[in-house]
């Protein structure tokens, strides 16, 4: 498989995971959140509104594409260029 097609296939898998499989993700609090509730320091959290709202199928796919662009851009910029 050519590298180009491998990357395209990988991005499609990521989009599928964020857009579809994420529907079946557990809604329970994660490890740190649960510990903060049990240990009585959850109320020290200062929450704020999210620019994109909660994680959902659409916002998840948007997130995947933004991360792809930013991380791809940064690593493309710092890579070794040319002959090797």
């Amino acid at each position: 498989m050519k590298t180009r097609w491998f990357v395209v296939a990988g991005v499609l898998v990521a989009i599928l995971l964020a857009g579809v499989v994420s529907i079946y993700a557990s809604g329970s609090p994660d490890g740190l959140t649960k510990v903060s509730e049990d240990q009585g320091f959850a109320d020290t959290e200062k929450s704020r509104d999210a620019l994109l709202g909660d994680y959902g199928s659409v916002t998840g796919v948007v997130g995947v594409l933004v991360v792809l662009a930013v991380a791809g851009g940064v690593t493309y910029a710092v890579r070794r260029r040319g002959s090797d």
Partner: peptide, 25 residues
Amino acid sequence: LDDKTAPMAGLVAAFIFAVQMLNFP
């Protein structure tokens, strides 16, 4: 990173973002 591995980095980041959405019990 070289011309071959740089595209992989973007994919890896995007993949990690997607899998981080998949909370397991």
